[in-house]
């Protein structure tokens, strides 16, 4: 049997809101070490990898490895019924065909249960090679969200170029061009506003803004986003979920 209780249920709501427009359905894999998901969008251009560690849950039990197929739109419908302050418990029998979501309000006055039908989904687990990246950039997630949104009003693609001191985002389109530079700033007073660059090699890669805007829906999960870039490799756009795990997006370069 699988049973997991997350005191901050809002976190699960935010995860699903961040990925539901990118992937239609996916298998959630549960084992002793935690709750994870790996899925590509239908055009095989981007990949979502979520992992929530067992110790990030208030209670976690998984007797056997199970894989639960869900349609994200349906999961989102159910999680929208949970209050932002509710604790969420997920439960499923080993050979069950449903997963139960239990929502508890903070004062335990309201308890609700929703069952979602599981589905069989063919999915292939991809081996993502461990790589050492040419450049790793950590920027405030709200700043990244604003940059990709602003640039999408000018062009369809963005060139991200990283040097020792700064990361530059550039685009151009029919009406003109734009570039936004963020300088390294290890702000001590306000760590949430820091921009940090770790570089082995200067790198410049071009990506579709449509996907980066979709990834930025994960902004509420983390104060920072980490971009990992290497020449001719997919970018990793990573949101660390404090104390619980990570949500990573991979996007092939243009």
């Amino acid at each position: 049997m699988f049973e997991a209780r997350l005191a901050q249920g809002a976190l699960l709501k935010k995860v699903v809101e961040a990925i539901k427009d990118l992937i239609e359905d996916a298998n959630f894999d549960c084992n002793n070490s935690g709750f994870s998901l790996q899925a590509m969008d239908s055009s095989h251009v981007s990949l979502v990898a979520l992992s929530l560690r067992a110790d990030g849950f208030e209670h976690y039990r998984c007797d056997r490895n199970i894989s639960m197929g869900m349609k994200l739109a349906n999961l989102s419908k159910i999680l929208k019924c949970a209050g932002n302050d509710d604790a969420i418990t997920m439960k499923s029998e080993d050979n069950g065909d449903t997963i139960t979501f239990m929502f508890e309000s903070p004062n335990q006055e309201r308890l609700s249960e929703f069952d979602l039908k599981l589905m069989d989904i063919d999915s292939e687990h991809l081996g993502i090679p461990e790589a050492e990246y040419d450049a790793t950039v950590k920027v405030p997630s709200s700043e990244f969200q604003r940059i990709v949104k602003d640039l999408a009003s000018i062009g369809d693609t963005v060139e991200i170029s990283v040097t020792k001191d700064a990361v530059k985002f550039s685009t151009s389109g029919d009406i003109g061009s734009a570039n936004i530079m963020c300088r390294q700033n290890k702000s001590v007073d306000k760590p949430e506003e820091s921009t940090e660059i770790d570089i082995n090699e200067p790198v410049a890669l071009t990506f579709a803004l449509r996907y980066l805007n979709s990834f930025a829906k994960a902004t509420p999960l983390s104060p920072h986003v980490v971009l990992k870039l290497s020449k001719d490799l997919p970018v990793v756009v990573e949101y660390h979920i404090p104390d619980v795990g990570r949500l990573g997006f991979y996007l092939a370069p243009k």
């Binding site: 590509m40 055009s43 095989h44 251009v45 981007s46 990949l47 991809l126 081996g127 993502i128 090679p129 693609t157 071009t206 579709a208 490799l233 997919p234 991979y250 996007l251 092939a252 370069p253 243009k254």
Partner: peptide, 13 residues
């Protein structure tokens, strides 16, 4: 410029 698929990067041959 076309968009590359991730299959080329992550799928084992």
């Amino acid at each position: 410029m076309g968009q590359k698929s991730l299959d080329a990067f992550f799928k084992r041959p």
